[in-house]
Amino acid sequence: MAKKVLVIDDNEQDRKIAERYLKKSGYNDIIMAVNGQEGLSKVNAENPGLVILDTMLPDILGFEVCRKIKDSKGPQAPVVIMMTGAVDAVDAVKARQSGADDYCVKTADGGPLLAALKNISDKDIDPHT
C-alpha cells in the first residue's frame, strides 16, 4: 500500500483535491508535477508506483505522457490513472490506447478517483508489490 504517488496536473485546485483523496485512501508519499515534462522526469527520478495524470497539460498531451511512461518503464511502469474535466469517449479510448489503467472524471467529491483507487488495491495491479 505504501507506494509513492505522482500527481501530474497543472491546476492547483485539482492537485489538492487529488492529494486529499489519495491520503484518504492511505497514500501518504505524494509528489507533484505541474506539467508533462516535469512529470516525466519525476517518473524517472522518483520511481512512483502510481501516477495520477491529467489529460490536459500545458506542454505535452496527457496521452503522450502516459505512453512515454509506459514505454520507458516497460513491465516496471507505474499504474496510471488518467483524470479529466471533460468526459469524452474519444479521449477515454485514447487514454486506454496510450496504456492508462483507468480513466475517470474529476469531481469535487472525488468519488470517481476513490473508486479507481479502490479498484487498484482490489486488483492489486501494482507492479511494485
Binding site: T84, V87, D88, A89, V90, D91, A92, V93, K94, A95, R96, D102, Y103, C104, V105, P112
Partner: peptide, 10 residues
C-alpha cells in the same frame, strides 16, 4: 472500455 468509462463519468 472507453465508452464504459465515459458512461460512468457522464
Amino acid at each position: 472500455w472507453g465508452l464504459q468509462k465515459t458512461n460512468e463519468g457522464i
